[in-house]
Write a protein that binds this DNA or RNA. Structure first.
Lengths: 354, 354
DNA sequence: ATCGCGTGTGTGCTCGAACACTTTTTTGAA
DNA sequence: TTCAAAAAAGTGTTCGAGCACACACGCGAT
């Protein structure tokens, strides 16, 4: 029982015409008599013809220039992982003529983002992968790119109302719920819990707010008797300052503090404080498998990390563009990545790109 | 800056010879003068030639008949997921001439396995994916298949000393450690913990023992003060019996029981008992996203499930065979899948094949 | 009738690798 | 020196789709 591949030539023979004509029908190039077109279409359906993708891509030799508009990994090491993922995807897709040009901006300077975004527009790539960390500044560009018919995939930060080909990242709300669930499971008796937004401009990053909402809602939904007190604070500090002072104030206000939830990848800053002050009883949950985070995870000062899979975000971002452009597949507008729970024990399996 | 594709013809020109000769060098077909061979090999290295995989597969048109020797999903629904994964892989790889023949056996009858395994040998597939649930019965076949040069990939159950192309599944020891870590995090004060092997022939499934070892080692490594008592029991029952009686006995012996770790996918049986007897304070951790397990996970009677990713095992098993046969990639002999920790909150993302 | 032109239709080359086939060169024995 | 066999090198066809081009009509204007 072998599956025979149906070729254009087979269709042509069955329709008593030539492959050129079938080809014109397949590509709507016109110049085909109506009755012949109909006959051919019927036969295509009947034989369930699917173009041989391999032959197609051999012939076409089309190249796809993708652009990646991402923050500089040297300035925030979080962005190393998406780069690795993109490289992996690029390697796999080079065969199909896919190449990626990087447009690296400074994640702390809006102007840098704008300059690079303009550059992208000028180069007119076939597709674009973008981490829109500057919400307001990015908005006008989406309109431009839509007008230029450049499909763009967002990752890391979800933005409503722009019309991307696809968003790739986590469901922030659920992410908050999950963090709450974990802490709740590990907390014996009532007490207070801190939601810490470390070094991040809250006003321009809605997803942190969403995480907090998920976190709070989880506790609110608990039965009365197990009432925890959830407080939240923004903790910002300059390059050479330390986080200590602010945490000390919080601890003075809340001596019964039992757990801290850090909403971004900066849990190691808090962990460092806890370690130096021997506060082993305070549970700590944060995000992302950065080196300093892993260090404290192994020491069990950070109890759990939630993996936002930044590598996967880069990888899938490029792949979604390729799926659209090269393989012409339907793309789901949202691709939520799993909320991986990481501990010292299962860490290894999440570190390597599979 | 476009990356030029290097063709055989390019090499031939640079070496002042013809593509036929280069081809013979590439495929070690001999009949090439030594000095020419050397020159060509150097140029290949220098230009960093990589065969155009697309053209290759267009030309070869080779078909690969893979065999899958797996238990009947109708008799144990755990095996539905690998089937789904295999189907997904099959779809992706059909383009490259890969097809899969199924050899389904009854996971409760050794004879059924043997019969199907013999059938596989007779059909002489190009590659084989096998879930070797019958350890002893499978052994002689591995020798046969090795002699016939049929590469085989094991999944689900790791077997030492047979020489598979690759094993795909979890690190059972780590898996046990992880379960211990989770329970430990959720347990406030010392107490006793049950390791339950439900309805499984321990003597023929070493991986359950390994899980238990990992679990016990974790608790043994804890500082003295937090001493937990770990006990383990095999719980077997026939079709129409219930698990209740045996659990009652255990609870009578261990009134301070705080948690149960079920080493296979049968946690729902224990959960049912806990629910009916209102034992909400006993923590429960088990394996696998089966329907009945998910039901209790959502009710939070099962606190956490560890996902063995049976879908991924089927998917990657087929892919590893294809990587070897079709894409001629190097295969790592062990592919450990991540130990995913699943709760009610992050469940959704693990249910669909990505 | 002849040319121009639009509309259908068919042919043949291309992509890069694989391999069968032919041609050229080398070798060694008579 | 000659010639057949072996060795080495080169040529051409194939895979399936895509596309440029050539060709064959019919019809109206000159």
């Amino acid at each position: 029982m072998k599956k025979k591949i149906i070729r254009i030539k087979d269709i042509a023979e069955k329709a008593q015409t030539s492959k050129g004509t079938v080809d014109r029908v397949l590509h709507n190039r016109g110049r085909v008599a109506d009755d012949v077109r109909k006959r051919i279409l019927e036969i295509i359906k009947e034989l369930n013809y699917e173009p041989n993708f391999i032959a197609q891509s051999l012939k076409s030799q089309r190249t796809f220039n993708l652009a990646a508009l991402v923050p500089d990994p040297h300035l925030d090491s979080y962005w190393e992982a998406p780069e690795t993922g993109m490289e992996k995807a690029e390697k796999e897709l080079r065969q199909y003529g896919v190449s990626i040009s990087r447009y690296i901006f400074n994640p702390h300077e809006e102007q840098s983002f704008i300059a690079k975004a303009q550059e992208v527009t000028r180069e007119h790539p076939d597709g674009l992968l973008i981490a829109p960390v500057f919400y307001k500044e990015a908005l006008p560009f989406f309109k431009e790119w839509a007008a230029l018919n450049i499909p763009y995939v967002l990752f890391n930060t979800q933005i409503e109302l722009v019309n991307p080909l696809c968003y790739i990242g986590q469901d922030s709300y659920r992410s908050g719920c999950l963090a709450a669930k974990i802490l709740c499971f590990g907390l014996q008796s009532p007490g207070s819990i801190l939601v810490a937004h470390v070094n991040e401009d809250i006003s321009n990053s809605a997803h942190l707010i969403t995480k907090e909402k998920g976190f709070r809602d989880y506790f609110n939904a608990l039965p009365e008797e197990s009432s925890f007190k959830v407080i939240s604070k923004e903790i910002n500090y300059a390059e050479n300052e330390s986080i200590d002072l602010q945490l000390e104030i919080i601890l003075k206000d809340e001596p019964g503090l039992k757990a801290i939830y850090v909403t971004n990848s900066k849990a190691f800053e808090v962990a460092s404080y806890l370690e130096r002050n021997q506060l082993k009883h305070i549970k700590l949950v944060g995000y992302d498998l950065l080196k300093p985070n892993l260090n404290y995870l192994n020491k069990e000062i950070i109890n759990f990390l939630i993996n936002q899979n930044p590598l996967g975000q880069g990888y899938w971002g490029i792949h979604q563009l390729a799926n659209h452009l090269v393989f012409k597949k339907e793309i789901q507008p949202i691709k939520f990545l799993p909320l991986d729970i990481i501990t010292k024990e299962n860490l290894d399996y999440y570190l390597d790109p599979q």
